[in-house]
Amino acid sequence: MLKNRIIPCLDVKNGRVVKGINFVELKDAGDPVEQAKIYSDGGADEICFLDITASNENRDTIIDIVRKTAKECFVPLTVGGGIRTIQNITDLLLAGADKVSINTAAVKNVDFVKEASKKFGSQCIVVAIDAKKVSDNKWEVFTHGGRNKTNIDAVEFAKQIELNGAGEILLTSMDKDGTKSGYDVDLLKAITKSTNIPVIASGGVGTLDHLYEGIVKGGASAVLAASIFHYGEYKIKDAKEYLNSKKVSVRL
């Protein structure tokens, strides 16, 4: 039976791990390579790096981190943030990333998803959707780390990127991110019901029960969280044991 994945996410800025509260007010919390190794040794099913300010800065920093991490972690490594070109993807994959997560570039031009999945295979193309609730059961796609409104319906966009070859969706609720009040379960449900590719839930985890909700109520194939693991509140193992005790199948 396929297991539900637990993915710790490391937001990286200037080569250091940070975690934003609603994407502002960044705190410094460690060396990304060391953190990734701790997570992988602790049973993380995958590791995710998000280079949160990559659009404005030198990309070599993240490539160097990926190169070092990939030599020590033998679980899948996903890298996102500032990916604009096929060359950006090539550089990250050569450095040792297994998947890349594309956000703004996918919204700007869905053909980029098609081109990337054709060239590298769907298995390594994740599309990150940042969505904000605009009315009852309606969410809109935002870009640039949640700063720019697009007027694109999140559910329609998810269907479109699936058609264009995305292998997975990394779905972040902008309303919930950093609040620790749980995933936006309705948003998750809306997206998981209208697509046939795996969805990774993101944004809002504060307790282990939130992980349970994301999988069982939201239909997510994987749950991503940052701060609850980051500041030592919970270990990956705690999360897995909790889910297992609630009859959610995980890799123990």
């Binding site: 297991k3 539900n4 997975e168 795996p198 890799r251």
Partner: peptide
Amino acid sequence: NGKFKLPHIGWNE
């Protein structure tokens, strides 16, 4: 008919 998501991604026994 969509009961199982594809690709088959993740950890399996």
